[in-house]
Amino acid sequence: MSSLLVAEWRRMVIDLVRYPLETVSMMVVMFAVFAGMFFGAHYLTAAPISGPNLSGVVIGYTVWTLVMNASGFMGYSIQNETQNGTLEQVMLAPWHTVQIFLVRGVMDILEMLLPVLVVLAALIALSGAKLDWRLLAAVPALMTIITAWGIGLMMAALALLFKRMNQLQLMIQFALLFVIIAPVATIAGAWGHVLGVLAPLSVQVSVLHATLAAAGHGASATLWWEAAADMVLWFVAGYWLLTAADHLARQRGIIGHY
């Protein structure tokens, strides 16, 4: 596994350094967005730049972009490699297809997260604002990302079989937005509750909110368990689906066809 990690890590670093304009402009956009959050609230409400609201917005936005990437990148990567004609060589590597694309998904998140951290650190230094966050919040954040990777593996499976799926990808991401914003996990009634728990991401996001809420006493143990179970469910489903799609694509001889 380590040489796969090393290979993909190096490729990511080369990509970041090779196209500095892309990297820099990405960071400028991020800076603008976060600066809007830091200073915007201040001008609107004349409240001090800090506090739980700011933290909630910043962390919420960051997790949201990470979720979009985690759920979209692997499918995008497969479409891209198919178009460029490199997918077959990648699939010839001595690794399970899921391993390869999962590692790529991890590298993509790192590629995104590292600049975010730099930009946030710069903004905190500039504005003197204080972000309210706890180390414990990293756990539900990671659970959210892992769940999103599960969905990413499913999208990768679709990309492997159907090649072109940009529209579908947009629709799925829109659905995710809905699931995250709507408090699905708190739907009344036993069945509604089960449904909410089965829906991806919403339970993990609830735990994240509860953990971040300054005055709160964190998420209940039940919520934690539900979030964990939901994460495992979606991740395993993604793993299984991509494995099946890999099998089917080799069966039909369509790996690398465009």
Partner: peptide, 9 residues
């Protein structure tokens, strides 16, 4: 036919 290589590298 397939290019077998990454063009950007």
């Amino acid at each position: 036919g397939s290019r077998n290589l990454y063009w950007r590298l």
